[in-house]
């Protein structure tokens, strides 16, 4: 399993990855990117599912249920909003629009 230092390396490398991805982004994409990263931390849903999957007492079940509910909202809402924003990126010059580039 993950021992302390291995996890530390993952934390560090993931942080650098996030930093590098965003470092040279045009302003036009700030809002969609914020929304997109908002979707990606919707992965919290997975954790909430695990928590609910291991809950025993009614109290734990209730907390887990709320967690899954919120996590699912984060993931689904984040996806829909981001997709709607990105749907709109078009160009007047053919060949530059989002549709042509895969």
């Amino acid at each position: 399993m993950l021992d302390g230092f291995l996890a530390l390396y993952i934390f560090m490398l993931a942080a650098f990855t996030g930093y590098e991805i965003i470092a040279r982004v045009p302003v036009i994409l700030h809002t969609p990117l914020m929304s997109g990263s908002n979707f990606i931390h919707g992965i919290v849903l997975v954790g909430a599912m695990i928590a609910l999957g291991h809950a025993h007492t009614p109290f734990e079940l209730a907390i887990g249920f709320i967690g899954v509910l919120l996590g699912a909202g984060n993931a689904a809402g984040g996806y829909v909003v981001t997709e709607r924003m990105l749907e709109m990126f078009k160009s007047s010059k053919p060949g530059q629009g989002g549709k042509e580039s895969k």
Binding site: A7, I10, A14, A15, G18, I21, M34, S37, I43
Partner: peptide, 12 residues
């Protein structure tokens, strides 16, 4: 969760 969370944490 660690990777996705940390990437978003840094990017955010």
């Amino acid at each position: 969760m660690i990777i996705a969370g940390m990437v978003v944490g840094a990017a955010g």
